[in-house]
Nucleic acid binder design. Structure first.
Lengths: 263, 263
DNA sequence: ACCTGAACACCGTTCAAGT
DNA sequence: ACCTGAACACCGTTCAAGT
């Protein structure tokens, strides 16, 4: 946890009001300019490590997240982390889990489809989008980490999520085949749209995000059309794009379901 | 551009028979088991560095590409590379350019739309897909490198490419607005689909790609539907997905163009 | 002109040792 | 039980020096 509100001494054991790794409380509590006072004796824990790692990525980007720096942020030497996390790779996997876990705290997302599957897909899509936008620099991690199983397609990298998705559709009358097809189409839609949105918002980048804003269009001498459309291409249409694309995806699934067997 | 053909050597200037970084000749010429004999005196050059880097990524993945190892592969110390490439970040940018440059050598891709824009989009989409599949481990690089300009949306990270795309559509009667909308939809379609396909094919991963094949479905105890659909989810439907999704995208664009002003 | 040796600051990771 | 010092192998990068 970034810094969970309890500095619970060794006595209290784990208190269940402690927010879990996914759901982050307000940024910066206890953590003063990136480093705790050594006198704080909040004990290390996997949760605290993962959530601090996520905060760190949010603030400084992926490249700046180092075992040693993360240790410093936690007021500890790097080697201590290995007691809770097997290594850097595993740390990043944990961050992905923490990210995905945030969705479980989004009231809108995991409810079953009571207003039809179209509404269900809308809610899920927008839930994932909120998560992506909340963590633009961490989101690419979700896409580039290996897909340990074929049924975990980015960005839906949580079994419980996938279960909710598939069972929701089946429950709405989709055949197995239709549900799987919808799942595939839905994931690539989300991945493409959100990755692009997030990278446009200045994610992905390393520590060199000092982009001169309104640069005067360089290197476009051999690209007259691009130059003509440059201003239009620069407009932020991310939300509209997302909604139109989602609408179209839903239409497509709809046609498939109606044209085939049921619903 | 990948590497503009002029590296103006002092004497002979550039030899045009040397393959450029994008278009790779057959693997392993000169390079014997990953390391040249020191007596070979093929001089270093930006092209040679970039194309060797791409080969290295294809073979060993992104994480294994190190300035020092790349130097070794080229029969040279790491420091020598800095004469041709400003640093590792720039090296990776160069690799992206080399990758994108490959498309320029794909006869099918860059022809203007003589058989209508639908066919044009089909050719472009499949061209990019061929490139992604030829370099599954390098492709994610295209998605995660910063988008230096808003008109260069991954995976179409070459101005000349974007120019061809947009001018092709405009030439087919698209309004500026329609062309830009189509460009946006097309890029997110490509990115989502290809990134997923490539990661399923075992790209992205670090050096730990020793995946037990046919693992007996672990951790699915709380996910009965996923378990039931596991086999179906594991099937490789990448090509069909791609074609259906592309077809649907073209339909969507078609409706927009017909419903709006022209064509 | 082109490459290298040596050095610097920084990594991830291990392990015996401290408290 | 939890953390650390010291060490190892490996990074990216700089720069004066070699040829």
């Amino acid at each position: 946890m970034a810094a969970d509100p309890d500095d619970g001494g060794p006595t209290g054991a784990q208190r269940s009001d402690e927010p879990d790794p996914g759901h982050l409380p307000d940024v910066d509590e206890l953590v003063v300019d990136g480093q705790e006072r050594p006198s704080d004796r909040v004990p290390l824990s996997r949760e605290r490590i993962l959530s601090t790692a996520l905060h760190s990525i949010d603030e400084e980007g992926l490249a700046a997240l180092t075992m040693r720096r993360l240790g410093a942020r936690l007021g500890v030497e790097a080697m201590s982390l290995y007691r809770y996390v097997p290594g850097r790779e595993a740390l990043l996997d944990g961050v992905v889990d923490a990210l995905v876990g945030e969705l479980d705290h989004d009231a809108d997302v995991l409810r079953s489809p009571e207003h039809g599957w179209q509404d269900f897909l809308q809610r899920m899509a927008h839930g994932v989008r909120r998560m992506a936008i909340a963590h633009p620099k961490a989101f690419p991690l979700i896409a580039s980490t290996p897909p340990e199983a074929p049924w975990l397609r980015p960005p839906l990298r949580s079994i419980s999520w996938v279960e909710t998705f598939l069972s929701g559709l089946v429950q709405q009358g989709f055949s197995d085949e239709e549900a799987v097809a919808a799942y595939r189409a839905f994931t690539s839609f989300l991945l493409g749209n959100l990755l692009l949105e997030v990278s446009q918002r200045g994610g992905a980048v390393g520590p060199l995000d000092l982009v001169d804003e309104e640069e005067p269009v360089g290197g476009l001498d051999d690209a007259p059309i691009v130059r003509r459309l440059a201003r239009r291409l620069g407009e932020d249409r991310a939300l509209q794009e997302f909604e139109e694309s989602l609408e179209s995806l839903i239409d497509r699934i709809s046609a498939q379901v109606l044209g085939g067997s049921g619903a």
